[in-house]
């Protein structure tokens, strides 16, 4: 039983880390991959999601609906931001980084002025279950399950819908997409809105586990940023999955071998090695390899 608890503990931690990174990074990688914008205000969109979840929850709305409302609210905020500011900085990595960092400061300081340093937390639902002498939170497994559902949903949207095809094409060559009748301005706004909505949902989900404050986003942005850069923008789904599996794996391993802090160092080390070998991220390498393989099979 003791060995089972130990092995289950490792798996539980791995799934928890995977869920955390996917939730934190999924919105960000869509915006980066599709629009070439590093959105440093993504954490603040998550923070907006957390506040909407808290306010609606304490107004009597059930938590799952409150989290969905957080997604809607953050999505609308994202579309407004895109129309007013972001659209002037497409494919300008450095400028977009500085501008969105400024936006993140405005949001966090604005919320601090309006709502104060923190608001009432939401209790974590579902409780715990014991194995041997250890206890495990059920909600962490729910987070993992929802992160999987989220990535499956994003994959389905970008693979099977016309919007997804238009978005992927716009990402690759916006000028040609325009010349084929696609309104790329709408595609950009909707894509940014979708990325922001995912951030809002993630914020709502994390609001049930963390202190809700104006600086809520700072807990997630750096790790999400690393996940996105390691994954690369060539294919958001394969990039995100490959990056998360590698980073969460190394973090879990080192975490158990040494401790939590060194676990984070292990994750950073893994990111560093991957970026040294694949400077444009894992997905760029996988996409090139796929095209080479298909080209070779086409010649046979």
């Amino acid at each position: 039983m003791e060995e089972f608890a130990l092995i289950f503990g490792y798996i539980y931690q791995y799934l928890d880390n995977i869920g955390f990174l996917i939730l934190a990074a999924s919105g960000l990688i869509i915006i980066f991959g599709m629009m070439g914008v590093i959105n440093m205000a993504h954490g603040e969109l998550m923070m907006i999601g957390a506040y909407i979840t808290a306010f609606t929850y304490y107004a009597g709305v059930p938590a799952p609906i409150a989290i969905l409302l957080a997604g809607v609210g953050a999505g609308i905020a994202g579309i407004i931001l895109e129309r007013l500011v972001i659209r002037f900085f497409y494919k300008q990595l450095l400028s977009s980084l500085v501008v969105t960092w400024g936006l993140s400061l405005m949001f966090s300081q604005g919320f601090l002025l309006i709502f104060g340093p923190s608001i009432l937390n939401i209790p974590t639902p579902f409780g715990n279950f014991p194995i041997d002498e250890q206890t495990f939170g059920i909600y962490r497994l729910v987070l993992f399950g929802i992160s999987m559902a989220m990535i499956a949903g994003v994959w389905a949207v970008f693979t099977f819908t016309r919007f997804g095809t238009h978005a992927r094409a716009t990402m690759e060559d916006p000028e040609m997409a325009d010349a084929l009748g696609v309104n790329t301005r709408h595609v950009y706004a909707l894509t940014f809105g979708l990325g922001s909505a995912l951030g809002g949902i993630a914020g709502g989900m994390f609001a049930l586990t963390a202190t809700i404050s104006p600086f809520f986003g700072i807990n997630y942005t750096p790790l999400a940023f690393i996940t996105v850069v390691v994954g690369g923008g060539a294919n958001v789904i394969t990039g995100l999955l490959a990056s998360v599996l590698a980073l969460a794996g190394s973090q879990t391993l080192v975490n158990n071998l040494v401790n939590v802090y060194v676990g984070y160092l292990g994750m950073m080390g893994t990111a560093l090695i991957i970026l040294l070998v694949l400077p444009r991220g894992i997905s760029e390498y996988l996409e090139r390899r796929k095209i080479r393989t298909e080209r070779a099979s086409g010649r046979e």
Binding site: A169, E172, D173, M176, L180, V182, E287, I291
Partner: peptide, 25 residues
């Protein structure tokens, strides 16, 4: 309809998806 120099295909999209991209013309 426009076929640019260098063809302007979406190389990362499938042939089917490239055809979908032309349907709004």
């Amino acid at each position: 309809g426009y076929v640019p120099q260098g063809r302007g295909l979406f190389t990362r999209l499938s042939v089917g998806d490239n055809l979908v991209m032309g349907e709004r013309v």
